[in-house]
Structure formats: structure tokens, C-alpha cells
Amino acid sequence: MFNKRKLVLITSMIMATALVFVGCGSKNNEINQKSNEVKETKSIRIGTSGGYFPFTFVENDVLQGFEIDVWNEIGERLDYDVEFVTSKFSGLFGMLDTDRIDSISNQIAITEERKEKYIFTTPYVYDGAQLVVKTGNDSIKSLEDLKGKKVGVSLGSNYEQIIREFDVNNEIEIITYDGGAMEQEVALGRIDAFLMDKLSSVELIKKTGLDLQLAGDPVAFNENAFPFVKNEKNEELIEKINTTIEEMRADGTLSEISEKWLEMDITKK
């Protein structure tokens, strides 16, 4: 009788011990799973010039602007860590091509040439290409008026492309700038005009107080979006970003960011 009781007691102890180990194993699995989830933190690298007020600029050593707010909101909604990488505009597409960044946020216009190489998100800004001249210069109103003149454009921008495609007979002296300075050159009368987006032009004139004015109506209209290298992974990511952009448009967040920086809504057609 004693032996039977002893056997039952030993068997119970063995089963209890086994349950403890099973329990520990489950907890270890949960810990490992959580550890793996931490390791899989999502991040995205966004290239920007940091020199295109009010869209992306540095003030008091802080990168800020319309583009920065838009991406911070996208990152928060998608649970992505957004890493901003600043570089001169002319180097951003090279960084994109060599996988040093995942996309560019710098008022990038969708063009047929770019669509051959990159896939774009849905547009988040609608804007126009605007000529700017020195105050009092009423001789320039259109691209046609640029013949025989010196015109500044940002190197590698769609604005450079607009001028070059128009100037088939090389009648315009096109001067490229890798960064700022072309607005000062126009204000000082060293070049005749520059071409950039209308909204930035208005804000630039307002902020700097330079002797500049808009010249005529926009010469072209742009739809701006975020470019990605063409691959299957990015196609899936863009679907998520597009959904988020449309949600931000529908709930008014895009409009709020636009009003904050531009005092107008540039996010709708």
C-alpha cells in the first residue's frame, strides 16, 4: 500500500515538473517572439535638400517644413521610423539609385521621363512652374520671352527639363544652380529670370524681401509625388503609403499641414 502511494506521489511530482517546464517554454517563446518583433522595427530613409523653403529647410539646426510634417505623419500612421537624409538636390536621385535612401521628399514633379525609371505614390501636391523676374521687369511673361535671356534653374530639376525641352534651338542661356543663389542673381540683375514652383516663389519673395516679382501665369502645372525605385517590395510599400495619403486628405490632415506652411491648400486639384 505504501509503495502504491509513493508511486502516485512520484508520478504527480513528475507531471507537475513537466507542466512547469512547458510553462517556462511558452514564456520563453513569447519573449523570443517579442524580441524578434523589436528587431523588425520598420524604418524608411527619406532624402531631402533642406534648402527649399517652406517645404524643407533648416532653421536653428532643426530640419522642418511642409515635406517634413507630411512624412512624420505618414510614418506615425504606418508605424515607421522616418530617417531624413539631407543632400544637395542634384545628388538626391543618385542616392535613390544606389539605395542610400528609399525615396525623395522635395516637391518632386511626376514627369514621363521619371516614370520610365521610378514608381510614384499618388500625388500629394498640385502646383505650377513659375517664372520670377526682378521687380519692374515686365518684358518676360512666358517661355517665349526668354529667348536671348539668362535663366536660372535648379540643377537636375524638372524646371531645368521644362526650359531645355522648350529651347530646342538653344536660344536661351540656361544657368544651373546647385542650391540657392539664383534668386539673388535675379534681384541683382545678373540673370534675367529663374523658374521654380509658384508657391515656393511666393513664399521666397515674402520671406526674403528681395526685389522680385512673378512673371505672368505658370508655364506648366505639376503633380508632385514621392518616387521609389521600381521593385516588388516598393510596389507593396507604395500601396500602404497611397492609402495613408488618401486618409490624410480625407480627414483634413494634408490641408492642415498645407495651411500651416503656405496659408493655402495645395493638396487638392
Rank of each mutant, 00 (worst) to 15 (best):
N29P: 00
I31H: 04
I31Q: 12
N32P: 00
N32M: 14
Q33M: 10
K34F: 07
S35Y: 11
S35T: 14
N36P: 02
E37H: 05
E37R: 10
E37W: 02
V38C: 05
V38I: 15
V38P: 00
V38R: 12
K39L: 15
K39Q: 13
K42E: 06
K42H: 06
S43I: 00
I44N: 02
R45A: 14
R45D: 05
T48K: 01
T48W: 02
S49D: 14
N60V: 02
D61I: 08
V62C: 01
V62H: 12
L63W: 11
L63T: 10
L63S: 05
G65F: 06
F66E: 08
F66P: 00
E67M: 11
I68G: 05
I68M: 13
I68S: 09
I68W: 07
V70Q: 08
N72L: 10
E73S: 15
G75I: 08
R77N: 12
R77Q: 13
L78A: 10
D79Q: 11
D79W: 01
V82A: 02
V82M: 02
E83C: 00
E83D: 13
F84K: 06
S87P: 05
K88H: 09
K88I: 12
K88S: 08
F89N: 06
F89L: 00
F89I: 03
G91F: 07
L92T: 01
L92E: 03
L92M: 10
F93P: 03
F93V: 07
G94S: 14
G94K: 10
L96K: 01
D97S: 11
D97V: 11
D97L: 13
T98Y: 09
T98C: 09
D99A: 12
R100Y: 10
I101F: 02
I101L: 10
D102G: 08
S105A: 15
S105Y: 05
Q107V: 10
I110N: 12
E113N: 12
R114S: 09
R114G: 07
K115M: 13
I119W: 03
F120G: 04
T121K: 03
T121W: 00
P123N: 09
D127E: 07
D127A: 08
D127Q: 07
A129T: 07
L131G: 01
L131E: 04
T135S: 12
G136S: 08
G136W: 10
N137W: 10
D138K: 08
D138M: 07
S139I: 11
K141T: 15
S142D: 14
S142M: 10
S142W: 03
L143R: 01
E144K: 09
